[in-house]
Amino acid sequence: MNTTIETATSTVPVGAVHTPDSPLDWSEPLVAGTVLLDEVVAPNAPWSTTVAAGQVLTIVDVGGNQSADCLIFDAANADERYSVPDTLAWQGNAYVRESTVLRSNLGRPLMTVVGNEVARQDTIGGACGKESNTLRYGHHTAFQHGCRENFLTEAARHGLGARDLVSNLNWFMNVPVEADGSLGIVDGISGPGKRVAVRAERDVLVLVSNCPQMNNPCNDFNPTPLRMLVTAPGLA
């Protein structure tokens, strides 16, 4: 093993960088129970896990206003997956809050929001990507990393691909819709240690991209870690 690897330099352009010494609050599970999984998603990184029916996934916004882009699949049949329009149509509302049922493209419950410490969670704004960044910010940003890259990378680990990526959730991101239809990602309303907890209504695969976007306020221009906890309620 080459022991110099830790100090190796790189000519890869530096993307989003977590500001050193920014305040972090690692918090704890939002729903009590036996902790089955406790992992950190590094800034800019993808992540996934399966959550069994009845278990609760708590996502901690450790540094505050860090968008956690999220897709959910039926663990046994990935053709059934999270659907923004079904979720919104069934609840008759454009925002995700506590008790929102996260529905599949067949209208069936995949997960339910059972705890939420942010006034309003987004599921309209979609994911950033190298290609869409060229429209939003210019072709000079296309070399940067994006959530779509993270989703494709993590999806591939589960045998999924571009066809399986659909409109997603953005935990801790703020996307208001105004009266004239104006819509956009604005400064966040979360903060360090804020949490959301979602209970699996069946066995699900959850993909997360810890958003590396550095051209809008979806992570306060400071990508920070996420803490992911899966608990089994009632087994504590």
């Binding site: 704004g125 979609g126 869409s132 429209l135 997603n168 239809g181 819509l183």
Partner: peptide
Amino acid sequence: VADTQKIPWQA
């Protein structure tokens, strides 16, 4: 649909 609403800043 997300990009169709987000990128033109219009829902």
